[in-house]
């Protein structure tokens, strides 16, 4: 699946998007997998309360299932307007 990062999440991880092969069942599982990879991921995901997640471009939750999902995006709370 494609995993996208925006704003300071993108800066901490150091790339805007990547393609990941994963068997993660939920967003939380995917986050655990990413955190185990490298320190920069571990730091970016250290406070999930400061993060939001979108599945296939719709806001979702960290306990949501990834079944059938093609695009996951992680970002800080939005500041539009």
């Amino acid at each position: 699946m494609d995993v996208l990062y925006f704003a300071w999440v993108r800066e901490r991880i150091g790339l805007p998007r990547e393609r990941i092969q994963t068997d993660a069942a939920t967003v939380n599982d995917l986050v655990a997998e990413l955190r185990a990879r490298e320190d920069r991921y571990d730091m970016a995901f250290s406070d999930l309360g400061a993060l939001r997640v979108a599945l296939d471009q719709e806001l979702s939750d960290f306990d949501a299932s990834l079944a059938g999902v093609r695009e996951v995006a992680f970002f800080p709370p939005m500041t539009g307007g």
């Binding site: 925006f6 704003a7 979108a54 806001l59 995006a73 970002f75 800080p76 709370p77 939005m78 500041t79 539009g80 307007g81």
Partner: peptide, 13 residues
């Protein structure tokens, strides 16, 4: 405006 502020994916710097 209220929804656009915190539900539209924009990030200001």
């Amino acid at each position: 405006m209220d929804f656009l502020k915190s539900r539209a994916p924009f990030w200001k710097r």
